[in-house]
């Protein structure tokens, strides 16, 4: 089998844009997932029974439905509900973010509960409100403790962005398919895509690990 790299000579700007979109979608869904995770995780831990039950339903739903189905539903079914079409990139970010948020919430909840109760008492004893205590004392420690798990979830966010190719988001996998179809060079193109995904994910995994080794002691009360 002869390797032919000529498709890249013509298509690299097209593919580079796709990589950029993959990075963008991943970053935005991480951000959405993280914010959702912190809010839902904190409300389930400290917000009382009502929030625990309602948000528990969100978490269980998201964990029980395949991401692929969520994305298809948001793109093809949700527009019928609101009577307007949705932009593919937004649909992808929302779907990935909602899905990731459920896992983030569980991770952050575990982190919050693992911080010794005395830390909350000490924060309250200074006159802090519960919100101030969670924000400045408990949450930072929880995030430090949960950094390895959060790192894995960030890697999943990048990898799962490839699923968005099914709703034709012009991200890396989708555009690779397009070029592979036009040039009849699937081996070169899909191998390249694989390498790019690896190059995106590997530094995130190692980087988070590296940071964790340096800050782990800050989370041990």
């Amino acid at each position: 089998m002869a390797i032919d790299l000529s498709p890249f000579a013509n298509s690299w700007p097209f593919l580079l844009k796709a990589v950029a979109l993959t990075v963008f979608i991943s970053a935005m869904s991480m951000l959405l997932g993280f914010v959702l995770g912190v809010v839902v995780g904190a409300l389930r831990t400290y917000g009382g029974r009502f929030f625990d039950i309602v948000l528990g339903f969100y978490v269980d739903t998201m964990r029980s439905i395949p991401l692929l189905v969520i994305l298809i539903w948001i793109y093809f079914a949700f527009p019928l509900v609101i009577g307007a079409s949705v932009d593919v990139t937004s649909a992808a970010i929302v779907g990935l973010g909602l899905h990731l948020g459920a896992y983030m919430a569980e991770t952050i909840r575990a982190g919050l509960t693992s911080v010794r109760r005395g830390q909350m008492a000490a924060a309250l004893a200074l006159g802090m409100s519960h919100t101030q205590a969670i924000r400045t004392i408990i949450l930072p420690q929880a995030l430090i403790r949960m950094l390895p798990s959060l790192g894995s979830l960030f890697v999943f966010a990048i990898k799962d962005s490839a699923i968005a190719s099914v709703i034709a988001v012009p991200e890396l996998l989708r555009q690779t398919q397009v070029v592979a179809g036009n040039t009849y060079r699937p081996f070169e193109l899909y191998t390249a895509a694989m390498i790019v995904y690896f190059l995106l994910c590997f530094p995130v995994a190692r980087g988070v690990d590296w940071i964790y080794r340096r800050v782990a002691h800050l989370g041990s009360s």
Partner: peptide
């Protein structure tokens, strides 16, 4: 009221200085 605990309960993610200032900046 100031309260001092058996297990100290210093905030491990903050420096000693920040442990002392956190109440001043967030509460006062």
């Amino acid at each position: 009221m100031g309260m001092v605990f058996q297990n100290f309960e210093l905030f491990p993610h903050l420096t000693v200085l920040k442990n002392v200032t956190i109440g001043l900046t967030t509460v006062l």
